[in-house]
Design a protein around this nucleic acid. Structure first.
Lengths: 235, 235
DNA sequence: CGGCTGATTGATTGTGCTCAATCAGTGTGG
DNA sequence: CCACACTGATTGAGCACAATCAATCAGCCG
């Protein structure tokens, strides 16, 4: 029961993934090093913290979360990764994975062996440049999260996450107004520095307002602009 | 009154800066593209947010802070950069600087024009690899900050910053037990998501305890291990 | 001296956490 | 098939940590 493996060239996610901005003749050089079609069931682990860093991964379908554990075992959800997004970048400098990645739902990923990728990137300057850009983007997003955690109220944090997920859905050609959250309330709270109860209360409050329709993990945003405007004012 | 310009080859910071792990014959290739010895006085700007991204910078002496402004003008201090550290990385993906960098004290920096750097990195694989590593390190540090802001108390945040500054001083061969804070209470609070008053109170409390001797910006840590242990318990 | 900025200290308030109970949904086993 | 257990989500009550508001203080410079 193997999943049909789709080359980068034919992959619908190419425009937003690693292989964007690469000329056709160089595409199959990438295609040769990428290991495709690995499938992970909900709850299964893609890589573990403290194991040797060998590869970064691109999400092909599904959703992945990464988390790290403090010495005392306290969990911190460090990111959610959707199709077309790259994870594992923070392991490069430490030469081992510094977070653990688990599937939030049944997912498939493409593995990019990092040593071979580096060898290819020196041959394809635009690929190197694009990878610099992907890493820079991750840093940039971290700055946004920094602001969210430092300056924004609990309501604003939740709304910002919803808007982010919405935008990322739209980027992949899906609805930005209606989607299903791949992660639990616990994960949301942990990621945003909030207690689960707080997240839950915010969802019920938003549901009572006109801003959002929430039912479990199903989200419906009647008007994106209204929601955007509510961010920064009171809920 | 020009400052003596020191090549990467002869720079005392080389082991911890961009040019570490580069072979001697390749060193002067880097030396040729780096623009050295730019001096910035306290309060002056190195680069502005929303200006075209051209270069990243290495701190040669002094200290730099970066900050970004929300649409409403609210400031967020996003980082402190000490000698040997690279700043400006988060601008690569946006093709413009997304933060503003100002000198906290009189500083000198080395400018690394990024286009030329990329051209060099494809010729020197170990340089490419090292730059991947530097960017990854930045992401990794952002994860640490994420945990700090999400999970740690005000006291722990301040202690963590002090320990970080201490470690970075030691890395450059300076004292990790006695140093001067280059940034104001305001900057510390802003960076750590705390009010100035809270930071001030924590310093006075730490001063009364045996953990720290604080006098204005002068810091003395009698015992690093004791301070490390206090992190995670009560203050 | 007076004015300014940065730091400190005090008093009060409020947001979001903790503790606790309940509920809904799902799967398990007798 | 239903009782039970288990997990995830929700709701409530009370509290605590850090923010806010406000005043004072120290150092510096014109």
């Amino acid at each position: 029961m193997f999943k049909r493996e789709v080359s980068c060239e034919k992959c619908s996610l190419r425009p937003i993934c690693l292989a964007s901005a690469i000329s056709p003749e160089q595409l199959d050089e990438i295609d040769r090093i990428v290991r495709r079609g690995r499938s992970i069931k909900r709850g299964e682990t893609l890589f573990h913290a403290s194991t040797p860093f060998e590869s970064v991964y691109a999400v092909r379908s599904g959703a992945i979360k990464t988390y790290s554990l403090a010495p005392d075992g306290e969990e911190l959800v460090t990111g959610f990764y959707l199709p077309g997004e790259i994870l594992g970048l923070e392991g490069i400098s430490q030469e081992e994975h510094t977070s653990t990645a688990v599937a939030l739902e049944t997912s498939t990923v493409c593995e990019i062996p990092f040593k071979r990728f580096g060898e290819l990137a020196v041959k394809i300057p635009s690929l190197q440049q694009h990878f610099f850009s992907i890493m820079s983007e991750e840093i940039y997003k971290d700055r946004t999260l920094h602001r969210l955690l430092s300056k924004r109220s609990a309501d604003e944090r939740v709304i910002a996450l919803l808007l982010s997920l919405s935008a990322r859905n739209r980027r992949r050609g899906l609805s930005g107004n209606e989607f299903r959250l791949p992660m639990s309330r616990y994960d949301i709270g942990n990621y945003l520095g909030l207690a689960v109860e707080t997240v839950s209360r915010i969802f019920t409050r938003l549901n009572k307002s006109e801003l959002l329709e929430v039912s479990g993990r199903e989200i419906k945003i009647p008007c994106l602009n209204t929601l955007r405007q509510s961010y920064g004012n009171d809920s």
